[in-house]
Amino acid sequence: MSDPKPEKRQSWEEGGPERLYVLTSGRSTPSDPAPLDMVTLIVTRNGPGSSMQPEQAGILRICDYPLSVAEISAYLHLPVSVVTVLLADLLGSGHVEARAPIPATSLPDVELLEAVMHGLQNL
């Protein structure tokens, strides 16, 4: 595996920028800028409605259990920037819940690091 994937680039371009434009209704940034990180965990709260975009319905389907924004992007074959826009709507309508990656103040950095080290040592 190498970093730029020419064959993938090809297939991506077939989808074309128009597809992204349609998916995000012309918006390039979320209307309600939720602080979504690549590792924000998304979990479905309510199943898809009948008039939902297939991509959004797909997100609701695969997020039965927590998935990061990056994983959603990988499974949907869409850039993170597009997934973020789709998720902003789903968050707004309460279809999904987001678990922010930045640890709350209740979990001090040192404690978090200890938990990470502990987990790694047990690998």
Binding site: D37, M38, V39, T40, L41, V43, P54, E55, G58, R61, I62, C63, D64, Y65, P66, L67, S68, E71, Y75, L76, H77, R99, P101, P103, L107, L112, V116
Partner: peptide, 21 residues
């Protein structure tokens, strides 16, 4: 193409609350 999610063995437990990178 249909959207395929994680394989069953790749599913995170519902209890996961914090992600770091």
């Amino acid at each position: 193409e249909p959207i395929v999610g994680p394989r069953s063995e790749d599913i995170l437990p519902a209890s996961v609350s914090t992600a770091v990178k």
